[in-house]
């Protein structure tokens, strides 16, 4: 079947199997390998992307379900050479180690700040509950998101 969507600002149309998961579409068809796969059961959030601005676990959604949608992956978050304030905050606060959960975590955090622009620590923790990280113990991720919320230039405005 044919699916059309806008991925990181570029429209594209592809012929895919109806059963193709969005994450495989992004990785294998669109060639955007920044989105990682961690669990296959929508438990870990490594594959989180933004679909029409909302965070979605792309291993739990068919490519066909994203037909007509605007999809943002980690590759589409920075403004050219300038990283998104959330990416900057993760770097500044050491919110990543192996980097595998990072794309999903960053996008989940961007989505969180869109919903709750000035969150408390408890709200950040609750908002990121669906994204697992095995390296950081979440401490610095939470610090990064809190800092991004305070950053200028609308860090919480999404991409």
């Amino acid at each position: 079947m044919e699916v059309s969507m806008t991925v990181n600002g570029s429209p594209r149309t592809d012929s895919v199997e109806p059963r193709l998961l969005l994450v495989h579409y992004l990785r294998d068809v669109a060639g955007l390998t920044g989105t990682n796969i961690g669990c296959d059961t929508s438990s870990c959030g490594a594959c989180t992307v933004l679909v029409d601005g909302e965070s979605v676990k792309s291993c739990t959604m068919l490519a066909a379900q994203a037909d007509g949608a605007e999809v943002t992956t980690i590759e589409g978050l920075a403004d050219g050479d300038r990283m998104h304030p959330m990416q900057e905050a993760f770097r500044e606060h050491h919110g990543l180690q192996c980097g595998y959960c990072t794309p999903g975590m960053v996008l989940a955090a961007v989505s969180l700040l869109k919903e709750v622009p000035d969150p408390t620590e408890a709200q950040v923790r609750e908002g990121l509950e669906g994204n697992l990280c095995r390296c950081t113990g979440y401490h610095n991720i939470v610090q990064a998101v809190l800092a991004a919320a305070k950053a200028p230039a609308g860090a919480g405005a999404g991409s």
Partner: peptide, 16 residues
């Protein structure tokens, strides 16, 4: 960290 720029942009290069 030097590593972070690539990981944060989705340019990490894992086996998959």
């Amino acid at each position: 960290r030097k590593e972070d720029a690539r990981f944060l942009r989705g340019q990490g290069h894992y086996v998959d």
